[in-house]
């Protein structure tokens, strides 16, 4: 059987596309990936999604999105797409050994936390190294943790971590933060937070059993390295688009974001559409992702009619 549309990814973009495609009787299939609900599922309060004047919890919001899409016939599977073929119609999508055929694809795979690429970082992930302060902050009560990064999410996480940790050190590679003024002020005024300027983390010391003991920091000016004791490492150094499955098949920019045609969600391959953070490194908001998900479903409808 050939599906009309397969949606890959289940954040605000994917689930909004599913809602609209469902209402258009396209019987969308959603492969949710390894993080159903997307990045919002590891946040706490979402205060900037319109319609929720008191704010809403990220995981709850995504649960509502999903229910609404399912109500109109979307089929959502907690499965990961491992391979696609889009050079001829119908397109093919693989989930493990199972192959699906479809007339159109909406790519809404989003972006994932960027890592530094250190061997020690990989070894200690989940054992003292984390990309999710809201998930793991709890385990650092009265501890000293560091957060690597200088943007709004780094500041947000630093502030969140002070609920548990006795001290939070922000490690930043420049001498000023990229974060918005309001977030900077909150951080500067928080007595539990200190900032280590002009420093990059080059190694992490610890074991999977005992966790992190220290990190090695290199001063970006003097290039000298030093040991900095801490109990946990949180990374907030930006995101990478989840596009490895599509590499070489679609036009992407240097960072791997999918390039879409102005004012639409059309990619360089007819019948393949992209929505949300996977094609947007500028706005990256739940509401913009949802908006583009809606556009993608409408683009699919038009494409199938023509």
């Amino acid at each position: 059987m050939i599906s009309k549309v397969i949606i890959i990814g289940s954040g605000p973009a994917g689930l909004t596309a599913a809602l609209y495609a469902g209402r258009a009787n396209l019987n969308p299939i959603v492969f949710e990936g390894d993080q159903p609900g997307g990045q919002l599922t590891i946040t706490t309060d979402v205060e900037n999604y319109p319609g929720f004047p008191e704010g809403v919890l990220g995981p709850e919001l995504m649960d509502l999105f999903r229910k609404q899409a399912v109500r109109f016939g979307a089929e959502c599977y907690f499965k990961y797409v491992s391979k696609v073929e889009i050079h001829e119609k119908p397109f093919k999508v693989w989930v493990g050994d199972k192959q699906y055929e479809t007339d159109t694809i909406i790519i809404s795979t989003g972006a994932s936390a960027r890592l530094l690429g250190l061997e020690s970082e990989n070894k200690l992930m989940g054992h003292g190294v984390s990309t999710c302060a809201t998930c793991d902050g709890f385990f650092y009560k009265e501890k000293h943790v560091i957060i690597v990064g200088g943007g709004d999410s780094a500041m947000e996480e630093a502030i969140f971590l002070t609920k548990f940790a006795k001290r939070v050190s922000v490690i930043h590679r420049r001498d000023e933060l990229r974060a918005s003024k309001i977030m900077q002020e909150r951080v500067f005024n928080n007595p539990k937070i200190d900032i280590v300027w002009n420093a990059v983390m080059v190694d992490i010391e610890g074991t999977q059993v005992d966790g992190v003991k220290a990190v090695i920091l290199r001063d970006t000016l003097s290039l000298e390295t030093r040991k900095f004791a801490c109990d946990g490492v949180f990374l907030a150094i930006g995101h990478n688009p989840n596009t490895s499955v599509f590499r070489g098949m679609l036009e992407m920019d240097k960072q791997g974001y999918i390039i879409i045609k102005n004012g639409s969600t059309k990619t360089s391959v007819e019948g393949v559409f992209a929505a949300g953070d996977v094609a947007d490194h500028v706005y990256r908001q739940a509401i913009t992702a949802a908006g583009s998900g809606c556009m993608a479903a409408i683009d699919v409808e038009h494409y199938l009619q023509s």
Binding site: S130, F138, Y140, Q208, V209
Partner: peptide
């Protein structure tokens, strides 16, 4: 539930959930 059973979580070095 790590909230209510901190000893077990600590004993096995849980620093991230879900584990």
């Amino acid at each position: 539930d790590v909230d209510h059973n901190p000893n077990t979580a600590m004993k096995f070095g849980i620093r991230s959930i879900p584990s």
